[in-house]
Structure formats: structure tokens, C-alpha cells
Design a protein around this nucleic acid. Structure first.
Lengths: 248, 248
DNA sequence: ACTTCCATACTTCCATACTAGTCAGGTTTG
DNA sequence: CAAACCTGACTAGTATGGAAGTATGGAAGT
């Protein structure tokens, strides 16, 4: 079948097998080496790594619960197509959570944290010219640092799960996304936090997270087979207002 | 062992077994019929329902990923203690998400939705005098309706997972929590949404969600064995400001 | 009394066999 | 000729046996 693309790394027979299978498959799916819509089977994957079906099956269960695989009972298992609405939904949730995190930071700015973030900004600019693949890692580090700074590591763990859906899109859009602009927005967040301006911080983080998937429609148009548009037409994103309100 | 408390319901041998085991165990844990710290084993549970160990194992995996079980390799499986910080974290996340949902609703109030919510408020008041157990179901319905009204069903699905941690606490506090006050707060949310007052809506939903676990310290003091306090002392909750900001 | 070793009875993890549902294609039947 | 019906090659779901790791209690040695 098409599973030769994931044979790359050998397994450590001493370590637990299930998590290794899980990690390999997850990586293959997020990086689109396993294309959305591909059919795979427990037996096939088990043969690929010369293990039994059991650990493969358990890895499938975990991947299915993340929405990366769809297990059809007695019929087969397919790599989920990228759900347009799930991606928008993940972005919405991420925005809601990170907005609150950022507000906590601005409420009581920590100079050490600001310094750490500014260091990261420098590193990001150094990589701006080079591979965008590395930038994704730095971007992840930046947002994780924000969560840790607000003592919300648990929140980040949840965001990681949401990110898997968004990252599939980002790996499709590699090459043409505006690294410079993203860095500028990162800087705006840090500035607002440093000044303790809660409103400005919220606005900055929200507009940043809306920028991340700005080219989703183009990517969808370029590779519609990778996507699963629920029914007729592309859903419109609905977001909360960027700031508090506008009473009459 | 202590597993006789979950023998209650028989299984349908025709339907898939794994989800049935999962649901039964989840229910038993959340309602504290299986006490935090209890040791259970695949073999034991399998015997209880006269099935093989395999579906039990798969149910264990799902429960462990939700944080309700802790599987220690080659050692055993225990019912997770209620993590104090995980509960606070779940509440923080829920507040962030539901605040944005409520703001969307207030942005463009839907009269049909408001009517539906007011009907639910009536039903809640009718049950206020009777069993608080039933109120929890209505409360859940209320919040789910808010999410659906903002077309964020996906968000609700995630909140359901978070709620499992919080619900364990609520089932411990049954009997003495302020149903009337909660209903009053529900009404405040509906009022604010109806008036399209975004700030008031946000304030209402946030203070409501902070009320829900108001008696967490007492519950913890009453049954400390059920809890797992990470290290020395009870963590302080840190929340985002209830509204936008306060620039200098 | 105290430590070390080892047998034993657990546990989860992995491999294998079997069951049952699904689908595609050829065959038979009306 | 068409439609219904077998049939065999898949699939995931379940059952069961054995492997490897871990805790525990008692025997042996210091």
C-alpha cells in the first residue's frame, strides 16, 4: 500500500511500542506524508514495523480521539481529511484561551518574563530569512512561554491537542506565510504586556492568532481533496469581539 | 476487591463492548462510587462483566487520557485522585471559552435563543426545591445551549472533557450548593445577552463560572484523601480580569 | 535485630487465534 | 438481460496465552 512513506525510523524494541507507533503515525499525518483520505489498516501498519496488531490498534485509538484518524468499524481506517470547521474551531478555542492567558500576564508584568520573550524575538528574527520550518518551532516555544508565564501549563497541554489540526494546515502552507508579520505581532504582544496594558495585550494576541490561518482559503482552493467541507460551502468564522464591549 | 459497586448495569452483548465498559467506569468514577486512590485491574474488571481483558484495557486507555485513571506500567491502575490544580485549570479554561461564546451571543442577540433560555430558567426554578442532582443536568443543558447558539458545538465537546474533572467535585458537594444563586446568575447572563451588552454578558458568565466551585476548599478539607495536592499547600487560582482593562 | 536474596503472586504489555461484519465480483436464477 | 444471491478476501472487534516488569513476604545469612 502507501505506507512505505512512514517506514523511515526503526523502533526501539526495548521501549514500549504503542507510544512509538503513535508518535510516528502522528508525525506522518501532521506533515501530510500520509495524505488525508488514505486508507490504512491495523494489519498493514503492523507488518510495516514487524509488530503485532495490538499496539498498532491502541495507537489508532489515540489518534482517532485526536481526530487524526477515523475508524470505521469492520470497514477500515482512514486518515481524516482536514476538517475546515474543526480548524476554525481550534483557532477560536485557542484565541479564547490565549487571550485570557495574555491578560493575566499584562495584569502583573514580570520583567524576567519580558526579557525572556525579547530574547526569543531576536532568535525569531535571525531565522526569519532561513527555513520557515524552524520558525514554527520557535513560534510554538513563544506561545508556550506565555502559558508558562501565567502558570497555565495545563492550558498549553490542551492547546497542543488543538494545534495538531492547525499544524496540518501550516505544513501545507509552508513557504508562503508572512514570517516577518508574525514576528511583528509577537513584538506587539510583548510590548503591551510590558506596559501592563490589558486591552492592548488582548487586542494584540487576538489579531495575531487570527493572522495565523489567514491563507486557509487559498490552501483549501489549492488542495481541496485534503479538506472535508461539511456541507455546501466554506463556513464563516465567528469570533468574539477583540475587546470588552460597546454598550449603547 | 471493591469493584462490586459498579456491577449495577448489565451489558448488551450485541453492541460493541469497549464503549459500554468505558461509560460504566466513567460514570462510577465521576460519581465517586469508585473512590480516588482505589486500585483496579484489567482482570478484575473483566471478570466483573464477564468479558475479556481486551475491551477493558481499551476503556482504561481512554479513561487514562481523560485523567480519570492512572495506568502504571507493570504495576497497576488506580483511580486518579482529584487533582486540585487540574480542577482549577479546567475552570480557567472553561471560563475563557464560555466568555468568548457569551460575547458572540451578545454581539447579535437572537430572540429565539433568548426565549429558549428563559424556558430553561423556568424549568430550573421548578427543580430548585427538589433534587440538586437533576439540577446538574439542567445546568449542563443551559451551558450547552449557549454554545450551540454561538455555533460552537465543537467547543462544547471540549468543555465536556474538562467538566469531568469539575463534576467529580460537584458530586462530592451535592446537597449544599446554592442552586438559587446559580439560577440567578443564569438569569443575569440571559438578561445581558438579550440587551446586547457585551461587557455585562462577559462579567455575568465569568462570575457565574467562578461561583460553581466556590466551596472547593471546604470539600477538600472534608475529604482530603480524595484529592491530590501537588506540593505543599493549595494552589491559588489566577484568573483573567473579568473585563477588558484599566489603562493607566 | 537487620539486611539480602529469592520465590511467588500479582500487574500491564504484546502476540496470536478466532469471530463477525462489510464489500466487491462472479455466478446463478427469474 | 437483469436482479438476486453466493463466495471469498478483506476489515475491525474480541478472546486468550504468554512475556517482562514490580511489589511482597519469608528464608537465609550476617
Amino acid at each position: 500500500m502507501q505506507a512505505e512513506r512512514i517506514t523511515s525510523v526503526a523502533l526501539d524494541p526495548a521501549a514500549p511500542i504503542t507510544p512509538q507507533i503513535y508518535a510516528q503515525l502522528r508525525d506522518a499525518i501532521i506533515r501530510n506524508r500520509l495524505a488525508p483520505g488514505d486508507r490504512i489498516s491495523e494489519t498493514e501498519i503492523a507488518r510495516t514495523w514487524s509488530v503485532s496488531r495490538q499496539p498498532v490498534r491502541e495507537a489508532f485509538i489515540r489518534l482517532a480521539s485526536e481526530g487524526l484518524l477515523a475508524v470505521l468499524p469492520q470497514r477500515g481506517t482512514i486518515v481524516s481529511r482536514i476538517s475546515y470547521s474543526a480548524v476554525l474551531n481550534a483557532r477560536f478555542l485557542r484565541e479564547a484561551i490565549e487571550a485570557d492567558i495574555a491578560k493575566i500576564l499584562a495584569q502583573d508584568p514580570d520583567p524576567d518574563l519580558v526579557r525572556e520573550l525579547r530574547d526569543q524575538l531576536e532568535a525569531q528574527e535571525k531565522l526569519a530569512a532561513t527555513s520557515p520550518k524552524d520558525f514554527i518551532a520557535l513560534d510554538e516555544q513563544f506561545h508556550r512561554t506565555l502559558a508558562d508565564g501565567a502558570a497555565k501549563r495545563g492550558a498549553w497541554k490542551l492547546i497542543e491537542g488543538l494545534k495538531s489540526q492547525m499544524d496540518r494546515v501550516r505544513f501545507l502552507s509552508l513557504g508562503h506565510f508572512p514570517v516577518g508579520k508574525l514576528i511583528e505581532q509577537h513584538r506587539a504582544v510583548v510590548d503591551a504586556v510590558e506596559q501592563g496594558d490589558i486591552n492592548a495585550t488582548e487586542t494584540a494576541i487576538r489579531s495575531h492568532l487570527r493572522e495565523v490561518l489567514i491563507d486557509l482559503p487559498q490552501i483549501h482552493a489549492a488542495q481541496p481533496d485534503f479538506f472535508d467541507v461539511p456541507e455546501g460551502g466554506v463556513p464563516e468564522p465567528v469570533n468574539a469581539p477583540t475587546q470588552g464591549g460597546n454598550d449603547p
